[in-house]
Design a protein around this nucleic acid. Structure first.
Length: 478
RNA sequence: GGCGCUAUCGUCUAACGGUUAGGACAGAGCCCUCUCAAGGCUUAAAUACGGGUUCGAUUCCCGUUAGCGCUACCA
């Protein structure tokens, strides 16, 4: 039975790297028809926050992938304690009464890493028991095998055979002096108890895996298959962090900007994985069908963002592509909340009329605020009247064009074909180019030069609004 | 410092030892066109460096360099 888990720790918002780890777990388990477990690794009482738990669920729910089973580590402490006790009872772990180091000894490491405190590791069991019984605080450390030194090995499904000498491994802690299990212990205990068959996680855990292998063995449990993923890094090569890179690393930033969940998924899936056949835009089903560990790259992937623009251009492109392919009704529904958030009194009917005009002009859903504003607001924001003057024309030409347009628009039927015919005929009468006729009208009606096609725009705006705005522009020029 | 991992266009990536080193995004140019988009076409752009092995290395081996990770009673 194939069982995988995604185990975020609630110490911050849902990170883009975590989202990708979740996605890869999801794809693997759906491809192979297994069970996906969501486990909140919340044993660090000091740093966990409810806000963070909420934000993780926010992000995961937005992605819309779902999971099959849910656990919280903090409610499974008894299991962790029992398993730690079992290791201790076998003599594979020992108590260390040394006070926690303050971390100041960073500098005196020239000779190599700290491995263990001999006085603790070699302390007779009777003395250890006596001091524990006296209430003296201690941590429980794993007794890493040293005589003889051995190589710990595992076969990574992505990186291949890995090995590390126990001479380079410190006696890591399993249980803190406050009685809480460490990450290593809790994680492995739960993986054993939940019968996890594949651990798919970030490559930052590769070095930890040697410790985990030792724990699995000490527990007499079969070790799962490990698959480590390359990390996601910032353009400057450093690892993505909230403090340094801001909202660019948070999943909800993408959601709030108007990314479609699938565009985001498609994007992060391509970071460190490839179907190897040049496909990029893929549906969820196609991704599921194509996913395997073989397609995972071993080098870290850079998420390409800047201080001005927190979004990778490829993610934006993928989103724009998806927007263009969406059925209009669906897109219109998605757009509505973004229009309202921009302060527009947008009605569904109006939104539905506007949608086809902006579909291929927006890249993010929030672009509705800047691209379609003039459809929804009562009064256009002020603009420079020189905008009204067409190419190779002057203010007189603009004025004449607007006066003529005003006449035409008051009599012509308000649909884009009729408007097209009538306005072109008007331009011909005036002996000016169609473009010279259209620009003043467009600016008068939209408040700027760059806008959707003119006749459709006029149609959606309606005769009254068009005439009012053109009248306003005529006053500006007079 | 120690240990581990990694290295192809600016970015994401393809190339089971033999290719004019391919694709995509971003960039540049042209076309289309009522503006903006969208679309079409074209273009520039990479195997980190040095040694091997081989008839032949992007590909295998070694070294250098660089980056990242771990080196906590964080996860």
């Amino acid at each position: 039975m194939l069982r995988v888990r995604f185990a975020p720790s609630p110490t911050g918002y849902l990170h883009i790297g975590s989202a990708r780890t979740f996605l890869f777990n999801w794809l693997y388990v759906r491809h192979n028809h297994g069970t996906l477990i969501l486990r909140l690794d919340d044993t660090d009482v000091e740093r966990n926050t409810q806000q963070s738990v909420d934000s993780i669920f926010d992000g995961l729910n937005w992605l819309g992938l779902g999971w099959d089973e849910y656990y919280q580590q903090s409610q499974r402490l008894e299991i962790h304690r029992q398993m730690t006790q079992a290791i201790f009872a076998k003599g594979l772990a020992y108590r260390d009464f040394t006070a926690a180091s303050s971390g100041d000894e960073e500098n005196n490491r020239e000779g190599g890493a700290w491995l263990f405190n001999p006085s603790a590791r070699d302390m007779p069991r009777t003395e250890s028991d006596r001091r524990a019984a006296a209430g003296e605080p201690f941590v429980i450390r794993f007794r890493v095998p040293r005589e003889p030194v051995q190589d710990i090995r595992f076969d990574d499904a992505v990186y291949g055979p890995q090995s590390k000498s126990t001479a380079d491994m410190e006696d890591f802690a399993l249980m803190r002096s406050n009685g809480m299990p460490t990450y290593h212990m809790a994680s492995c205990a739960d993986d054993v108890d939940l019968k996890i068959s594949h651990i798919i996680r970030g490559q930052d855990h590769t070095s930890n895996t040697f410790k985990h292998v030792l724990i699995f063995e000490a527990l007499g449990a079969e070790r799962p298959t490990f698959a480590h993923l390359p990390l996601l890094i910032a353009p400057d090569g450093s690892k993505l962090s909230k403090r340094k890179h801001g909202p660019a690393v948070s999943v909800t930033t993408y959601r709030d900007a108007g990314f479609l969940p699938h565009a985001y998924l498609n994007f992060i899936c391509l970071l460190g994985w490839s179907p190897k056949d040049d496909r990029e835009q893929m549906t969820r089903q196609e991704l599921t069908d194509a996913f395997s560990f073989d397609g995972i790259n071993r080098a870290n992937a850079t998420v390409n963002f800047t201080e001005e623009d927190p979004f990778d251009p490829k993610a934006v492109w993928l989103n724009a592509e998806l927007i263009r392919q969406m059925p209009l009704d669906e897109l219109s529904t998605e757009l509505l909340p973004f229009a309202r958030a921009a302060g527009f009194a947008a009605e569904p009917d109006k939104m539905r009329q506007v949608t086809p005009l902006i579909q291929e002009r927006i890249r993010l859903l929030r672009d509705v605020a800047t691209v379609a504003d003039f459809f929804f607001i009562e009064r256009l924001p002020p603009f420079d009247k020189s905008e009204l003057i067409p190419q190779k024309g002057d203010a007189a030409m603009a004025l004449a064009a607007l006066l003529r347009a005003s006449e035409i628009l008051s009599t012509t039927e308000f649909n884009h074909q009729a408007l097209d015919t009538a306005l072109r005929a008007g331009a011909q009468d005036m002996k000016i180019k169609p473009g010279q006729m259209f620009q003043p009208i467009r600016v008068a009606v939209c408040g700027r030069k760059n806008a959707p096609p003119l006749f459709e725009t006029l149609e959606v705006l309606g005769r009254g609004t068009c005439l009012n705005r053109i009248g306003e522009a005529i006053r500006m020029l007079s």
